[in-house]
């Protein structure tokens, strides 16, 4: 199909764009590796004090850390993916050009973000993960099925991650400035995705809540599926539900926003 090829081209463009920044990618690999090492030590101390915290053993906690470093840029957990460019285009009014393109706005940006995510995964995510696997004990499955299930959850995680950031970016239609939204994205992303601590180690009722928020679909679900801590189908259902809800919300807000642009005359 013609339109399928269009979005594929957009995705390839997203991949290529990030691939041109070689030094920046190398710098990112280095930084993620250093942070991984620091976090691993603190987690080991924590799990030393309280074995089986959140149902993980030490090797699983270590695996979780390196997976977090691997997905940090891939899922733009702290922000900094397609939504950054989208906000800028809304702010400058260039978005009007995008609206006249014979393509779906949301799909267009999703395609670009998927391309970016794929590059960040291969170029920036894999190396710290391999480094972790070589120098620290990890709990990685030896058969192929959990890895395939893991790939499915990654794909769904990419969708949820994009949907959250797309919604945030659209708010700039009303706020006219992305500063505050970016900060909110950063705080919620880092905290509720479980970058500081696995969500299943969060205490009490607070833990119950954070584990059903959409951010749980980003790092916690793929990690649990890879390490066999949860039923893959349950994870898929959870992620897919959030993806559908958030992407639909994105479409709704998008149509309100475009009406606004048309009324204002671009």
């Amino acid at each position: 199909m013609g339109s399928g090829r269009l979005y594929l081209a957009v995705a390839v463009g997203g991949f290529r764009r990030y691939a041109t920044y070689r030094a920046a990618t190398a710098a990112g690999v280095f930084t993620n590796t250093v942070f991984g090492v620091i976090l691993v030590y603190t987690y080991l101390a924590l799990w030393d004090e309280k074995p089986h915290l959140g149902g993980y053993d030490q090797a699983q906690a270590v695996t979780y850390v390196w997976l977090g470093q691997c997905l940090y840029a891939t899922l733009a957990i702290q922000g900094g993916g397609a939504e950054k460019d989208l906000m800028e285009r809304i702010r400058t009014g260039e978005i009007a050009v995008d609206l006249y393109r014979p393509a779906d706005l949301q799909l267009w940006w999703l395609a670009g973000d998927v391309g970016r995510a794929l590059f960040q995964m291969l170029g920036r995510g894999v190396i710290p993960f391999v480094f972790g696997a070589v120098f620290f004990p990890m709990a990685l499955p030896t058969e192929i099925t959990p890895w395939l299930a893991f790939l499915v959850t990654l794909l769904l995680a990419t969708l949820v991650s994009f949907a959250i950031r797309y919604l945030a970016a659209l708010s700039v239609f009303w706020l006219m400035d992305g500063m505050g939204v970016n900060q909110a994205l950063m705080i919620t992303g880092v905290f509720f995705s479980g970058m500081v601590l696995p969500l299943n180690a969060f205490p009490g009722a607070f833990g119950e809540i954070v584990r059903v928020l959409p951010w749980a679909a980003q790092l916690q679900m793929p990690a649990d599926v890879l390490m066999g801590e949860t039923d893959p189908w349950r994870a898929y259902a959870f992620q897919a539900a959030w993806a559908v809800v958030l992407l639909a919300a994105g479409r709704l807000v998008q149509s309100a926003a475009t009406r606004r642009v048309v009324v204002q005359g671009g």
Partner: peptide, 10 residues
């Protein structure tokens, strides 16, 4: 390395 500002973050 002009693009490698992120190294210092580490």
């Amino acid at each position: 390395a002009q693009d490698a500002a992120e190294v210092q973050n580490a």
